[in-house]
Design a protein around this nucleic acid. Sequence first.
DNA 1: TTGAAAGCGGACTCAAGGTCCGGATTCTAC
DNA 2: GTAGAATCCGGACCTTGAGTCCGCTTTCAA
Lengths: 202, 202
Amino acid sequence: MPEHRSRKDAVRNREAVLTAADTLFSRCESPEEVTMADIAAAAGVGKGTLFRAFGDRVGLLRALYEARLEPLREAVETGPPPLGPATPPRQRVPALLDALLCFKLDNRHLAVALEESGSASPYQVEHYERWHGLLRAALGQIPDLTDSDFTAHALLAAVRADLVEHLAGQQRVPRERLRARLADYTARVLAPGPPGQSTTED
Amino acid sequence: MPEHRSRKDAVRNREAVLTAADTLFSRCESPEEVTMADIAAAAGVGKGTLFRAFGDRVGLLRALYEARLEPLREAVETGPPPLGPATPPRQRVPALLDALLCFKLDNRHLAVALEESGSASPYQVEHYERWHGLLRAALGQIPDLTDSDFTAHALLAAVRADLVEHLAGQQRVPRERLRARLADYTARVLAPGPPGQSTTED
DNA sequence: TTGAAAGCGGACTCAAGGTCCGGATTCTAC
DNA sequence: GTAGAATCCGGACCTTGAGTCCGCTTTCAA
């Protein structure tokens, strides 16, 4: 192979930083009490290393987030039902949202940190586009849904990290209860029957 | 009146700061390119004045936001239908959400600035509780809705400032189209028909 | 008019993200 | 194995913006 992507101390340090950041974020309640200097110190490297490897704070957060999200991404893209692409839309949409909710429950601090990291609204983070496109496509295959684009946005908004954090973290809503609520809500949104005029029940 | 709440230069400066901040926020695209020093300079006062009057950045944002929101608040609390308390819930809920959407469309920068101001998730801002309580109460009067609490959160999430900003600002979705989408979506959520066990359909 | 309480404002502090460069480490070529 | 160059390390340093402080000014009541 003609390209040596990076030196081995580089990859080692990169891993160390990711691990340290992961630990720190999961330990602290608020993501902003974890500074870049803290992370560097915990990883046993200098700040320069940290910034060279990830660019800036958001880059580090994103890398962490993507790494954590990888299994789910794979399950969605090439896995079996109910998450995989072969699932019928009416089952897949709730499954996707439930998976996303569980992910944010399991990675609360990290997700909050990324979604509210400075100026980057979640809608500018690349993976939001993926989820939105996915959901939109699935919704588009369900008849009677007038606008799958907005619906996808609205459904994703229901599992935003800070809302999840507020409900699960602040108000101590149990995990299963939250999942049930979301499932109910999703089912209602997907329920057959055109909106606007509450027509004949079917 | 025995209490002179504040000196007249104090109130004059307070107004000047609010006006200046309003102007600056509506002029700039991103809320963080407006610094406290900028606001102070534009208002023709010192930074000390600004911080004494509002405590900190979030306090200033909140004061601005509340001031802007005041007419809507009054319309909701003591006004005529479709916003006022006399409105039947099935009409009031969409009306409230539409009003909120319009407000955020009209005050995009300010709303974004407040909702993502540092660590304060929108769920810790006091007025979120008001809206949520309002919506929740209205939803509670609609039969067949299993959990008005979560539903209220989810519906409010659909009009979050950064989503509105993303759709209206970034993707140039026209105002009326957005309102129509939200109305459709709301109608779907409120549509009669039991959720949950309808997944046996396909 | 006058004294003092309230307010003013800009210089200052502090914290955190981000940069830089001399020195150490790794990899390749021989 | 070794030389030498490219890469990387790391912490001192810079910048920026929120928030503080205190001597001076304005307001207000007596």
